[in-house]
């Protein structure tokens, strides 16, 4: 695939796992790497930045081979989980650090620092010290500092994981906005798949050091290529496939469908399209979510999560799922 963005093949082995990741993102994309703890997401970022050595493989950015280029020449900026703001410097000095390295004049530095502070919505913060800042402010200053180095690629290592939920929501939108304004190719690591789904152009799912799937958010959500990806992204219901062998060959493996694909039948079931019926599922709990109800039900011993517009009156409901919404994974287990 012709690609002027980032393309990497990363091979490195450590005590905990072996990293064997290969993926590509396009120029200007905001891509998210997600995966469970210990799957190698942060390690991937550090390899791309050059902070860890590659055993084998290559890193190409905008057509340039960066594999043997030292860290400080790669033009890849990174925002760390702990922000790593230099404590003995003011906000302005922190942001100006990369500008000073590029020998900008003082007046130019002051101007650029002010521009960047405006970009991250923190005008006037020049003179503050890092111990006077809140978590969200530190994160934005770290971002501004990274952008000051005019990078070809921006890496963000779980930038929001230390913040509370409401702030996370607000700041991820800010990150998306800043990305759109600057157009910089960005690679973002998080363990929060909701975060990834909401702001990423592309999602890369990793597990045990390997890339499981890479694609647009809708693609990964509706067309996961493995049970792991299916269950990692969003909610879903998994049931053994043999329960639904309807005269066709014996099937091993599992079927999978999203909660919103299950319709709660309050009235007598009508049949328009081929579907599976789960009759007399017991309602175990019902959560009100504002616009709808989220039901935890159990059908023949298997848990099924679904949504309903109304609170179910009885203890037992009927569910149907259209067959075309079903995903089948042969080697999956419940």
């Amino acid at each position: 695939m012709h690609n002027s963005g980032l393309a990497c093949t990363l091979n490195a082995s450590y005590d905990e796992f072996t990293l064997n990741a290969e993926f590509a993102i396009e120029e200007g994309e905001l891509a998210c790497i997600i995966g469970p703890s210990g799957c190698g997401k942060s390690t991937t970022l550090q390899l791309i930045a050059g902070l860890l050595p590659l055993t084998e493989g290559s890193i190409t950015l905008h057509g340039n081979d960066l594999t043997s280029v030292p860290v400080h020449h790669r033009q890849i900026a990174m925002v760390f989980q702990e922000y790593a703001l230099f404590p003995h410097m003011s906000v302005a000095s922190n942001i100006a650090y990369p500008l000073k390295l590029r020998h900008l004049k003082k007046s130019e530095r002051t101007k650029r620092v002010a521009e960047l502070l405006t970009l991250v919505s923190l005008e006037g913060y020049e003179k503050r010290k890092s111990d006077e800042l809140s978590g969200g402010e530190k994160q934005r200053i770290a971002l501004a500092r990274a952008l000051a180095s005019d990078p070809q690629l921006l890496l963000l290592d779980e930038p929001l994981s230390a913040l509370d939920a409401k702030l996370r929501k607000h700041l991820r939108e800010e990150i998306r906005r800043i990305h759109d304004e600057t157009g910089i190719t960005t690679l973002y690591v998080t363990h929060d798949q909701e975060e990834a789904l909401s702001i990423a152009d592309r999602i890369i799912v990793m597990r045990d050091g390997t890339v499981m799937q890479s694609g647009k958010a809708e693609e990964v959500y509706h067309a996961p290529n493995s049970l792991f990806v299916a269950t990692f992204i969003g909610d879903g219901n998994t049931l053994p496939a043999h329960l639904f062998a309807d005269g066709e060959e014996e099937r091993s493996g599992v079927i999978f469908f999203r909660p919103e694909e299950a319709t709660v039948q309050i009235t007598v079931p009508g049949e328009h399209l081929p579907h599976l019926a789960f009759n007399e599922a017991t309602v175990e709990s019902c959560e009100f979510q504002g616009g709808r109800y989220r039901l935890h039900t159990r059908w023949q011993g298997y848990p099924i999560i679904c949504y309903s517009e109304r609170r179910p009156k009885g203890k037992s409901i009927n569910l149907t799922v259209r067959k075309k919404d079903l995903l089948y994974f042969e080697d999956g287990n419940v």
Binding site: H72, F80, E82, F86, P98, L155
Partner: peptide, 18 residues
């Protein structure tokens, strides 16, 4: 001193010595 300070500086374009 956390390692991330030096790492940060490197990614911003500073040589290890600087």
């Amino acid at each position: 001193i956390p390692l991330s300070y030096a790492h940060s500086a490197w990614t911003l374009g500073s040589t290890p010595g600087h």
